[in-house]
Structures are given as C-alpha cells and as structure tokens.
Write a protein that binds this DNA or RNA. Sequence first.
RNA 1: GGGGCGGUAGCUCAGCUGGCUAGAGCGCUGCGUUCACAUCGCAGAAGUCGGGGGUUCGAAUCCCUCCCGCCCCA
Length: 890
Amino acid sequence: MNETLDPRYDPEGIEAPLYRRWEAAGLFHVPAGDVKRPYVISIPPPNVTGVLHMGHALNHTIQDVLIRWRRMQGCDAVWVPGMDHAGIATQNVVERELAKEGLTRWDLGRERFVERVWAWVEEYGDQILDQQRAIGDSCDWERTRFTLDEGLSRAVREVFVRLYEKGLIYRGSYIINWCPRCQTALSNEEVEHKEVAGKLYQIRYPLAEAGEEGVVVTTTRPETMLGDTGVAVHPEDARYHALVGAELILPLVGRRLPIVADEYVDPEFGSGAVKVTPAHDPNDFEIGERHGLLRVNVMSADASMSDEVPEAYRGLDRFEARERVLEDLETAGFLVGTEPHTHAVGHCYRCDTAVEPWLSEQWFVRMKPLAERGLAAHREGRLRFHPEHFGKKYDHWMENIRDWCISRQLWWGHRIPVWYCEACDAQVVAREDPTECPECGGGLEQDPDVLDTWFSSALWPFSTVGWPEETEDLRALYPTHALVTGPGIIFFWVARMVMMGLEFMGELPFRDVVINGTVRDHLGRRMAKSLGNGIDPLEVVERFGADAMRYTLVNATAMGTNIQLNYQDLESAFAVGRNFGNKIWNAARFALPYLSEEDVAESPLDRALELEDRWILSRFHGVVLEINEALEAFRLHDAASAVYRFGWGEFCDWYLELVKTRLRGDRGEEGRAAATTTLAHALDGWMRLLHPIMPFISETIALRLPGRGEAYTIVSGPWPEPPEEWSDAAAERDMSSLQEIVGHVRNLRAEYGVDPGREVRVMVRGATPELRSALEGAGEGVARLARAAFQEVDGQPPSGPGAHAVLRSGAELFLPLADLVDVERERARLSKELARLEKILASSKARLESRKFLERAPADVVEREREKERSVEERRRRLVEKRRALEGTG
RNA sequence: GGGGCGGUAGCUCAGCUGGCUAGAGCGCUGCGUUCACAUCGCAGAAGUCGGGGGUUCGAAUCCCUCCCGCCCCA
C-alpha cells in the first residue's frame, strides 16, 4: 500500500480508528499460557469516580512507553489495567448527589446506599477506561480488574484472615485521626498537614491546696482542656520538683489533676508544664498510659462536645466550644495570656475538614514485622527507586513506621470479616460468612466497618492476577517489573505493596519503582480542580493528537521532576510535540513516493552506498544504542530527545536534503537505488524507535511503506537491531566535516547579506585527503545546501577581498566577495573570532604548561588537550594571516 | 523540630560516576515561501552554572557554609 499521505497531518482522523484496530486484533493481549518472556506492569488503578487528568496522562504515557518498547523487543508485555473503588472519595461523590435530593446516606440505610453507589459505578465507572484508550494506553483490557470485584474481595478477606491469625491484625482503643465530616477514622497517611495561623493560650490551673498560685499550661486547642486528666512536667525541671505528685483543679470542670513527671515534656517550651488530654492527643495518650491517667472523651463523632463535659458546653461544635471556654476562662480569671502562633493542623485528604485526634475502637495492622523485610529488600538492592533519592524517603518512613489503622466507618468498601456473638463474647474472623457463633450457637453480627481503600490496593499486583487461587495468570504475571507512580503515594501504596507482596507471595511485587514528576501550571502550582488551572488531556488529544501530548510529556520530564504546562496557552504548551508530529508527517509524505517494495526488502549494504547513506545508517545504529540505554535506565526524556535529534536534526535536515536530487535519478540508477533503499530503512527504523512514544503516527507511516498493507503493524515489533556493519566512524567523521563547511558558508553568507538565491564561489585550501574525498563524494549535495561552488586551490593564498573561515582540520575557506565585503567589517569579524580562540588557547596552554597536569591527568585527557591546542592554534595562525592580508587591501 | 529536593540562557529544563570551546525546546532578532513541512528553513543575540570557601592537575558536577524557593514527616 503505497498511497500518499494526506497533505495535512490530522491526528484526530488517524488515532481513534487505529486504536480500535489494534484492540480488535488483540495486539495488547497475551494469554497466560503463551507467556514466555514476561514484562508486566500493574497500572496504578485510577479512582472509579475519576476522570483523566494530566497527571494520569504523564503516568500512563511512561508506562505505555515501557510496555510498547518491551513488546516490540519480543517480550510478552502485559499491562494490567483496572480501577480502585476509592472508599471515601466515591462515597463522598454519591453522598453529594444524595444531598441534592435532600437525602443523607442514613435516610437510605446501608444496603440501599451501597446499591446506589454500585449503580453510580456502573453508569460512570468505565469513562476513564475509554479516556485511556484515547491517549493510546496499550492495556490488556481483557484483564481489567476492580478492587471491589469478587476475586479481589476474596483476596482481601484471605489477607485479613491470615494476618489476623498471625497476630498482625488487632483491635484496640487508640487515638486515631478522625474526620468529623466523613465520620470515619483515617490513617496517618490520609491526613494532610497545613500551616494554620492560630493562637497560643496560657491558662492557669490552680493548686488544689488553697492559697497557691498554681501552674500555667499552654495550648492551641483550649476546648480540649475539658478532657484534661493531668498536667506533666519534665522530671529534671527544678521549677516544678516540689509540685510533682500534687494536684491541680481543672478550671470550669473542677476535676482534680495529678502533676506527673515525664521525659516527653520540653522544659524550654512555654512554661514547661503541659496539660494532658489522653483522649484527644496521641502524645498525651502515651503520657496517660505511663501514668495511669483517666481518658475523658469530650467529643462526639461529629466533633460536637459530648456528655462528658459540663452541661453548658454539651452539644456545642468544637469551635464554638473553644470560644465559650475562652470567654469563661477569661471571666473567671484563668486566662493569663494569648499570643499568635502558627501550627500545623491535620486535614482530611478527601474533604479538607480539620481532623480531630480522637480516641476510638479501631482495627490496626502491626507494621514493624512487615516493614523489616521491605526495608531489607531496598537495602540489599533488590528494590530500586528511580530517581534513587526517593529510596531515602522510603527508608525513613519504613524505619519509623507505625501501626496502620485500617478500619473505616464507611459503607462503601470491603466489610471487615469479623463477627461478634450476640450471646457470648466470642469474636469470629472467617473467610466464609458464618451463620452462628461457633462457641455457643448464638446469633452473630458483623463488624459494621469497612477496610481502608489502600488495604485492597496493597494487594493489587497479585490480587489482579488471581491470588489466592494458584492461577496460570498468577504464575505467569507475578512478579511485575516496573511500577510507575507519583511521589505522593510512596507510603500509601508502594511501600504497602512491597510489604504485602513479600508477605503473601514471598517475592517483591516489582523491582523498579519509577517515580514520575508532578504536573504543574506555568506558575508552578499543582494542577487542581479547585484552582481551575487544570488541562483536560482529551482536549489536548482533540486539538493536537495523543502523540503530540505524549511526546511533549515524555520529553519534558526527567523522572521525578516537575513539569510545567501553561493551561492558558495550550498551543505553546504542546508545541514541541505538535511541531514534531507535523515534521514527521511531512518527511514521510516526501519520502514515501520514491520507495518501492524492493527498497524495503533489500539490505542497504547490498547497494552502492554513498557517504550520506553510510552516514545516516551509522547514525541510526548509534541512536538505537543510545535509546536502549536510556530506556533501560528509565531516562525516557533522553530517549525522546534522541529520537527527535535523529529524526529532525539528522534525517530531515541533512539526509533528506542531501539525497533529494539522487532520488530523482540525477546520479544514475545506482545512486538512486542506494538512496531509496537507505531511505526506506532509515524511515522505517525511525518510526519504530518513535513508536513507544508516538504510537499512532509511527504506525500510520510504517504501514504505508511499500509492500505493507492495512494488516501490517509495528506494535508487535520488531524493535530495531541494526547490524554492526552500519556503524561507520569514517562516514560520521567525514559528514561532520562537510556539515562544518556548510555551517561556515551559511554563516558567512548571512553575515554579509549575500542574496539567498545567489551562488557563491568557495575556495578550499589545505584540505586533508579525507575532506577532499568527502567533497568529491557528496560535493553536489553540500554545494546545494550551501549554495556554493567549491573549488580547491593550493599554493598561494587567494588574493582580493573576501571572507575567511578556518575549519577544525586546519583547512581554509575563502569566499571572494569583491562587491560585498566591507574590509572593516571583515576585520572586526576576524578579530572577534580571534579573541574567542585566544581565550580558549590561553586556558589550554596554561593547562599544558602545568607539570602537575601532565603528570596527574590521564594520558587520553592530556592527548585531547594537546589536540585541542594544536587545532585552535592552527586556526588562530590562519586567521591572523588573513587579517594581515586585509591590511593590504583596505 | 526531623528528612528530602531544587537554584544552569528571558521562560521551562537537560547535563550520569569531575575532563571536548556548557546544551535543548519555547521566546527573541535578521533573512528566506515555485521546489515534503511557515506547525517550516537558515543565521544570530543571550549564561559571574545562587553567593562564599575548600578538595583536585582540572569543579556546573565532589565537600563545607550561607542565601533563596519547594515538598514530605513530626
């Protein structure tokens, strides 16, 4: 199929149909039985409520590049897609919908509410999968999973039961982070700390013994004083030695508070005395434990004041209560001081409400034993982060790991598989729902809570492929290879997958963790719905094509750094990718009509290759190595810029330009055939190298090479492996001399404003034999690119006014420009160039004159320095000569 | 308070384990459109590599320190 390409590059017209064809042909699916050389990536499952944003686009493009590259290399590449039920997030979305109808989840009741969420999921849940198709994700859709589907739910339950049986899951009353709006516990990771301008209040607690002044304590949350059950001081704080063991009276409440000595207290901070509220602060909880203090829970689930406080405050919202408490303390004379103070306040990561440290009964996972192996895996180099420094964050977190609160007071999620007997106090933890108490035969009631969403996410790499069943998929697809994700969920997700993988599979779930950058706007702000600064990937796809977006993203991000895109000017934000696509299209449009089936089938080495042919094949050989190396090291941006430089800077700018006339047969049939065969291979190779990053345009062009039909594809490879013979150092050296000549002539022409249409005469003196033969070989093309007629001269230097340049090899160029050259101007130009050379020469000479340099620097470095000095010195000498010659003509 | 990241051209960033005359894209300036591409071509201007100190024959790169941004955890 050798039809011509549309004159206009229209990504919208080619992308969607192509994707449908790929999917229909099953190119992204590998049956488990066929997996011989697996390369597996488990997608970070997007929230089922989600729509694709730029962060996904970046994250997915990186994964797709890796998957497509390995697939082309002949691996059985499987990218397992899916979605996360996203407990709190999804429940919130549906609750908001209900609110529009004036309803709450309580009005519906648990069962009907959960049905309602499922209905929502069924209606909107698949949206994001189609968006993934639009950006080209080559997922194995037949393996799509949802964290709440049957198989994954079984995995969740199995894990819970096993951990429980191993004593790694326990239930207890501890301080957890409570979101009063979502009315659920949160893990430490689900709390975002924000600096808030608050106040520091000093409150005097009088001693129980009458007549004494008492002790001043400091707090940012005065309402919690209602739950104080003690005051702590540092054991070595001389100011309070006498008071330890004495009792204070809690103002407004009247409770007697013991003064205890505890190392935790910082004697430098405030008065050195700390109020202790065991039910509302994790540190106070521990102090309370150590000293046997009471726990008084002064708040209800909605953060209003509970019945444990004096009547006047009951039912007040926590912030109202704060004001009332302050007023009352003031009136009673207990408030001694107030000062401004900024401190970090935890907020719910889903609804942004200030969380309350709250004492409640929750389920926890004991993390230390799990973390040890995860930590060892990284330290021993079996688990690697890219970029490496993210490993430090991982280590730090793992070393300081705390138990994980996994119960959530939500309705949407995996119900905790624990039942309580209504008759005796038995507690049943089971894989299958029990019907009666095994102890006494009494009725059972299941724990009302569900598990943290991240509990099921932690199992993702093996739960998606069948675990706990010993499936073929599980054997073929675990462990996965790379995990690609954002920096924000290393703790939420990555670390937990590592721990669970090691625990249940006995093997890491992946060896390489690739952390992608954060997409920000042009002002450096994170893209967020609330800021309205986001970019819709689908709009970008529609306007510039998925390929343009993918290229722009891959090119712009060194792993783990930020990527800035201007949402107000998509045109320029995606210009790199869009322009590149256009260039590729046009290059192919130009080249294809010259090619025949034979060109595609034959080896270029069997043709009578000319310099530029050998050069482009050699460059291709080089760029393949460069790209392989970059991709292996997850430096996708290096691969992107390499394929760009090769395609645009070498193939288009030089090769196509040089062979234009040969393609039309100006140098005979042999010359034409060598050019077309080389061209076919270079173009095909370029498209293959491009394919992982820009799959649509590369495939479109590749299948239009003669002899290939609609059924042809490069999706399955092969990935280029150019023969060693294509590498040709001599060709590269000679071409680079020619490029240098063209550069000089173009520069001089521009300097002197030579009419672009006018051909100039260029005299070359002192050419090396290599240069001479190169000029003979490719002279015609070079002459065309420089719009110059070359003429070799030797012996005496050319006379008359003109412009000069000296090449690195020492050869000289002279352009006689009698009517154009302004002697003063040429002299100034030469002087400027001379000054530049002098500077380089000076530093080079200084180095070479230093004995230490000669003694200590490696020989090759010294040799290179000598070579540089020689070359610069030679050019300087020639230019000085030229300048002197000008004196005569001025 | 603890941990981490970054400061290279007007902008966004490359530059790996120290060694070619520090690069790219965008932007800017000049010239150019019968000839694949103006979403283009050619040429050009532009950098005390945050400041200071040190190690070294040699530092954008390694060490120390200071300044300025940012992130995570308490």
